[in-house]
Amino acid sequence: MTIRSLFACIGLAMLMSMHGAAAQPAQYKIVTASPSGTYIQIGRDLAKWVAAPADIELEVLESKGSAENVRRMRFEPGVKLALVQSDVFQAYLDEAKTGNAEAGNIIRPLRLILPLYDEEIYFVVRADSLMTGIHEIKNKKIGVGPLGSGTALTSRTLYQLMFQEPLPEGSAQYLTNEEALAKLTVDKTIDVAIIVAGQPAKLFTDMKPEARKYIKLLKLDEGVPEAARARKTYFPATIRSASYASWLESDVPTWSVKAYLVTYDYGLKATVGHLSRFAESLCSNFDKLQASGHPKWKQVKLELPSLGQGWRYYPPVEKKLRACIAASAMPAASPAGSVGVPGAPVRPCTEQELVLGICRR
């Protein structure tokens, strides 16, 4: 074999190797929430209808919820996407503004892909409870969700807003949804279980008609002062009886929080390329998500509204989505800038830091 032939063979082998590597789909992960929640179904929809057509194998991972998702998005290898509640994202930004360097290190490079839908907040009590309104939970024993979950952050924030004081340390129990319902109805060691999930949520759709003998939902009364204070961060919503026809007899007014699809400010060419294709696929397959995915997709709009300080879209994806939106003659908005983060003070960590999982005692 001549030298020229040898180099030709080597070149052909390299070309074939590169072609084979290019043919392999990217291996990405998305962190969601518990198996009984809505996030995990949204993640599966994205894997099937958006990632797969973009040549991405998207593994859908369970988690405790939004607060944990933020940290895993930031640090866990392979996690390129996360589902995060708006109040959790804002809580990290607020901690960063106070001088918490760890919170700033976690949140500063995270970027938004798309606002999704509103998640309803369920205030569950025993059927024989004398409470009827959400504003009556003050000083009650409350299952607030696991440490590291978005539910725990939401529970604490809502309580603080409504009653203008922190949730008492002895009142909060950090429990999973299933544990909280058991403590509520079997042990009767808590008075309220707070659960955040977009309807219809599997946890409640699986309930049988006799569930109404054991539990009920508290209602939002928009006329009370507590409601006016909570409206600064949360939005009125309705839990529809049609979502849980087997046990819920009438619609229940409540609060909701926005869900976002989040990524990292990646600069690696291959990752930028894959996420750009993900955005193109999201645009071209959006109708399939709404037609065949979880019912919550019908509430999602393919638009990029203006963001508050510290919130930023991921530029490569934003570019693709804005082009899609413009082609569809939909309105678009410009992103806001980022916020700088000073160094962290040496001090005891707060309960909010503990809930966010950035506590260092």
Rank of each mutant, 00 (worst) to 15 (best):
K202S: 06
K202N: 04
L203T: 06
L203E: 01
F204S: 13
T205K: 02
T205C: 01
D206G: 04
D206P: 00
M207E: 07
M207Q: 09
M207H: 04
K208T: 12
P209Q: 05
E210N: 10
E210P: 02
A211H: 02
A211P: 00
A211E: 07
R212E: 14
R212T: 14
R212W: 08
K213W: 14
K213H: 15
K213Q: 15
K213Y: 14
K213L: 15
K213P: 11
K213S: 15
K213D: 15
K213M: 15
I215P: 00
I215G: 04
I215L: 15
I215N: 11
I215R: 09
K216F: 12
K216Q: 15
K216R: 15
L218G: 11
L218I: 03
L218P: 05
L218W: 00
L218H: 06
K219Y: 02
K219C: 01
K219M: 06
K219T: 07
L220S: 04
L220P: 00
E222Q: 13
E222Y: 06
E222M: 12
G223C: 09
G223R: 06
G223S: 14
V224W: 09
V224G: 09
A227V: 05
A227C: 09
A227N: 04
A227I: 02
A227L: 03
A228T: 09
A228R: 11
R229M: 04
R229S: 06
A230F: 01
A230E: 01
R231G: 08
K232W: 08
T233A: 04
T233E: 03
T233Q: 02
Y234C: 04
Y234I: 02
F235M: 12
F235P: 01
F235R: 13
P236C: 13
P236R: 13
T238G: 01
I239F: 02
I239V: 11
R240D: 01
R240E: 05
R240P: 00
S241R: 14
A242N: 08
A242Q: 10
A242G: 06
S243H: 04
Y244P: 00
S246C: 07
S246F: 02
S246A: 15
S246D: 12
S246Q: 11
W247S: 06
W247E: 05
W247P: 02
E249P: 12
D251Y: 12
V252A: 13
V252H: 07
P253S: 14
T254Q: 05
T254Y: 08
W255M: 08
V257M: 00
V257G: 01
K258L: 07
K258F: 02
K258P: 03
K258N: 06
A259L: 11
A259F: 02
A259N: 13
A259T: 11
A259D: 13
Y260L: 10
Y260I: 07
Y260K: 08
V262Q: 07
V262E: 05
V262S: 03
T263C: 05
T263R: 06
Y264A: 13
Y264F: 15
Y264G: 08
Y264T: 11
D265L: 10
D265R: 13
Y266D: 08
Y266Q: 06
Y266I: 05
Y266A: 09
Y266K: 06
G267K: 15
G267P: 08
